[in-house]
Design a binder for these strands. Sequence first.
DNA 1: ATTTTGATATGATAATTGTCATGTTTTGAT
DNA 2: ATCAAAACATGACAATTATCATATCAAAAT
Lengths: 225, 225
Amino acid sequence: MSKCEQCIIRQFNSLKSLTKDDLIRIAGCKTSRIIKKGETIFEEGETLNGVYCVRDGICKLSKLSANGKDQIVKLVVKGDLLGQRSIIGEEAVNLSAVALNDMEVCFIPKSEIMGSLKSNSDFSMDVLKQMAHDLKESDNIIVNMAQKSVKQRLAEALLYIHKNFGVNEEGILNIVLSREDYASVVGTATESAIRVLSQFKKEGLISTSGKQIKLEDLEGLNRVE
Amino acid sequence: MSKCEQCIIRQFNSLKSLTKDDLIRIAGCKTSRIIKKGETIFEEGETLNGVYCVRDGICKLSKLSANGKDQIVKLVVKGDLLGQRSIIGEEAVNLSAVALNDMEVCFIPKSEIMGSLKSNSDFSMDVLKQMAHDLKESDNIIVNMAQKSVKQRLAEALLYIHKNFGVNEEGILNIVLSREDYASVVGTATESAIRVLSQFKKEGLISTSGKQIKLEDLEGLNRVE
DNA sequence: ATTTTGATATGATAATTGTCATGTTTTGAT
DNA sequence: ATCAAAACATGACAATTATCATATCAAAAT
């Protein structure tokens, strides 16, 4: 079993404030898990007994709407934690997590996290900060959903992915989403997402090859009306 | 100066976990303030030096969108705290707060709040829980904005206000919003909000008298498609 | 290699929502 | 009480977006 103390991933999330003692304790009871592309990590309504720390891979967090459509609320990268909110709020998770490619995650039992939150004020402060930041992000998403057009939202989603998940050697977005997933991120019909992407392609803002997308004109995408 | 120890409002928010010592300390440096209807408590981009505890009255939290329209993100009641996120995240506030009627608020300096957060793990746990809950709420709002029609969103907004802010003796909603504000809550054009409200009235779902709105058929509003 | 399935694409059309114009009512100031 | 300004209301029309139908393409299974 690998030691949490040496885990680089920690640097990217609130776990960085854990003490050596915390980490040794956690390393002793954490479990590592491989999740295949398309597999579900947890589902809306489940009760979690701990949090997941994403060591590798990408997943989507989504919520089922009353109309039966899934809405993707967040895309999660390496380094993010999953399930803290549910643990802290002592409620069932309100989102489903599905792997977008093969993932490696560590599961840390609830008791360890709660213990560290109580005893380590630096850690709880970090979690608070992370949540304050997430709330700010949520406000931005709400405003965008309410006030911007599908075209604008899709352009922003592409730029967001570009910025936060990066591109490979050929400039192709590291995250590969189906058109249906893009629709679900933006909150529109699949056909609409397809149409807008086609239009972006015609206008030279992006180029595509199957599901792979490359942003060709960041400035242009920023200016989409 | 009134004592925080005896303040009933505290029961409704995270401040309920403060110790007697905390409260005496805070009572010594908090300031009370009256805010008139329409006045701004703080504006997007400002740096706050503390949090506001709402003792009486109602206000709206809104954010300016790129298109120049205001989006109301939250309505705040008696008992809520304003500005914790900004203080915790050590960032400028991302929302503006404007009073919807006359308000009474207490201002508690940043240092006091931060001190209690560090020293009192019950308090920081309560704040964490509150934030976890707020994040869950935000997810719901995002999904609604993305997937539901203006009509549905407005019906839900009315039901939300009914449930969370209550009605007076005659059954009229305690919160009085302009049609422009309703549009801003729902994320639509003022004219659209007006039209939908007119339609609800025709269908007997609500009755109105000027800005005053009474919900006549809660079931019906729930079923709006 | 062929079939089958699911994803992508696009047209035609309908429904929703936004914008502009204009009139009416309400509110607030003098 | 009167007037001006703001809020409310509604029609006409345009723009956006959803839905349904159908075609093509790509990936995966046999």
